[in-house]
Write a protein that binds this DNA or RNA. Structure first.
Lengths: 118, 118
DNA sequence: ATACAAGTTAGAGTTCACTCTAAGTCAAGC
DNA sequence: GCTTGACTTAGAGTGAACTCTAACTTGTAT
């Protein structure tokens, strides 16, 4: 799979994919004879996971920590688990907070609907 | 209420408060004889609302649209309501997406716990 | 053979939302 | 009266995550 196809498949620009590679988030990408990148299923799954972590508000630096542990092999399993568990806690708190904000927003909208706001 | 007290009360730095003023988010702040800002309850409530919108992911530019409509008076009530309703829809979708991400994350953590991940 | 689309690199530029700096004025305690 | 801390302004600097540019090479369709 070349850059163009992969880029469209994962929904990230070629610029972004090269940027991820540069910061160490996406290593060991194969090259063909002429130096062009060749992506496979492995990269597709991994980029999908990166995107999920990012969408849940994890900064790239922490995604990179996970990526680095992952590349270090099986001895880092527990540390990776803890990293994800910590992230889950944050995500749960985030969801709760957003739900609280939603309630207040709905109250505000009700004030508008009943003409009680100037 | 002077800068220091207000800053601590609303949890934003004096820099940020002046920045909000500069971009038009916080207008008509009173000044005392020597040109220092004097904040009141009105500003406190308004900054609280700004913070809530911001925390739900609204960019400052859109908060500013709301602020501008608000200052334009009663003729913009419906437009403000629509803006908030649109934001509510986005927020609801965001919460749903985060909940989906949380489920996947929990599955991943379970894989780590049961030793099914390398 | 020739377009032209897509690939490569290093590095510069952009956007958002602050955050800080410089240079100066003002206020409160001793 | 003097130090210390808070205030003022305009404008520069920061960090995250891209996003784009220039200059060049490669691949594909006619």
């Amino acid at each position: 799979m070349n850059m163009k196809v992969f880029s469209e498949k994962v929904g990230l620009s070629s610029h972004t994919l090269r940027y991820y590679e540069k910061i160490g988030l996406l290593n060991q990408v194969q090259r063909n004879a002429s130096g062009h990148r060749v992506y496979g299923k492995k990269e597709e799954v991994w980029v999908g996971f990166i995107k999920r972590l990012k969408e849940t508000g994890m900064p790239l630096e922490e995604v990179l920590r996970y990526a680095t542990l992952r590349e270090a092999g099986g001895s880092t399993l527990l540390e990776r688990q803890h990293l994800l568990e910590k992230h889950r806690e944050g995500l749960m708190r985030h969801i709760e907070q957003q739900q609280a904000h939603l309630s207040v927003l709905e109250e505000k909208i009700d004030l508008y609907k009943s003409g009680k706001v100037a």
